[in-house]
Write a protein that binds this DNA or RNA. Sequence first.
DNA 1: CTATTGCATTGACAACCATCGTTTCAATAG
DNA 2: CTATTGAAACGATGGTTGTCAATGCAATAG
Lengths: 117, 117
Amino acid sequence: MSVDLQLAPKTKRPAGERCCDPVVYPDVEREQARRMAAVAKALGDPIRLQLVDVLRKHAGKVCVCELVPLFEISQPTLSHHLGKLRAAGIVDSERRGLWAYYYVIPGALEELSGWLS
Amino acid sequence: MSVDLQLAPKTKRPAGERCCDPVVYPDVEREQARRMAAVAKALGDPIRLQLVDVLRKHAGKVCVCELVPLFEISQPTLSHHLGKLRAAGIVDSERRGLWAYYYVIPGALEELSGWLS
DNA sequence: CTATTGCATTGACAACCATCGTTTCAATAG
DNA sequence: CTATTGAAACGATGGTTGTCAATGCAATAG
């Protein structure tokens, strides 16, 4: 994430003049921003953030039935949240018999994490 | 962010038994999750994320009129986005003369950044 | 001082998307 | 067969995102 904009001088000007010239914004930036915003948006719910937290701790895999009692929401709602995290590319699941085991995809949070720090 | 849950064993069980016992979830965790999710939510839009990026780069202050030409949205819409970032405690503004200068509040992203990495 | 110009915020509104529960269903195990 | 897990479908509610119009302020012009 590097922008390098040519910002107009922030000095006082007489009224009647334009404030600043338009600046082109690189498209690459826009794509990166779109990706990172999608991840951030998926994390923008306390339940989903806690879900990711639990899944990251238990690096292996956690079955959905173990997640349900942690939150005061119904099982279908939890399933819905997991589906959103999966759609955002943050987690994935693996079905073994009756149970579905979720895990955080390695590196899924790297881009955002790197940009933030 | 430390959860320390007592997860039930992920072994196969005969049908007819409950999958796992309910587990208490620490309230402290919940508050942290709520705070970080609020920040993530504010960053969950490409425009807002790029706004934060630009403001972080120009650590000083950038006037709104310089931000407008960077995005293909109207000025009021940009103002709304800035308002959301301010409501989330990520940025603040300072008015000098005609212009409003925005800056990222130091440390505003630290908690989320630390949890992510 | 008053009028005018320009920057930024705020409000109202339409269109869209998210959240959540209830119900339903496919798949699996006994 | 029955019981269980987890996901999909539906609808009700509420929140986002965007525009335009109106307002609040600062600074210059007369």
